[in-house]
């Protein structure tokens, strides 16, 4: 479990980088941890960096989408950042466009967007 994702709080934003080859259980517990932390840390934004993910299948795609909906219910905006080109094309082909999540090129792009909205 050495490479399990760690969640950091920076300027009211929860940051997490998902490691490659994360298991289904690990990503589910990450989802749980994030929802708890949004409330306990009073976070207004969540940034999920998936640059390390070589692939995103329907399971991970669904968890990402659920995470965004859940965060929105808790008044936090979720950004998925760092998606690789081939992953984006494959997800579109799978019919998963993550329309509930916002996206940005990188972590700093997401932070800039959150700041301009007064959320960071």
């Amino acid at each position: 479990m050495a490479d399990t994702a760690s969640v950091y709080l920076v300027e009211h934003v929860l940051l997490v980088a998902i490691p490659d080859n994360i298991t289904d259980t690990e990503i589910m517990s990450l989802q749980e941890e994030l929802s708890t932390r949004i409330v306990s840390d009073g976070a207004r934004g969540v940034v999920i960096d998936i640059a390390a993910l070589e692939i995103v299948d329907t399971f991970v795609g669904r968890v990402l989408a659920q995470l965004s909906s859940m965060a929105r219910l808790l008044a936090a905006e979720t950004f998925v950042v760092g998606m690789r080109p081939a992953v984006a094309m494959t997800l579109v082909e799978l019919g998963m466009d993550l329309h509930g999540s916002r996206t940005a090129l990188t972590l700093s792009h997401a932070l800039r967007a959150l700041r301009s909205e007064g959320l960071a």
Binding site: E54, I55, V56, D57, F59, P85, T90
Partner: peptide
């Protein structure tokens, strides 16, 4: 190619799960 690999590996992930 990156795309062909990602497509196939994603499909493998689905059927393995």
């Amino acid at each position: 190619s990156a795309l062909r690999k990602v497509r196939f590996v994603t499909a493998v992930s689905e059927i393995a799960r």
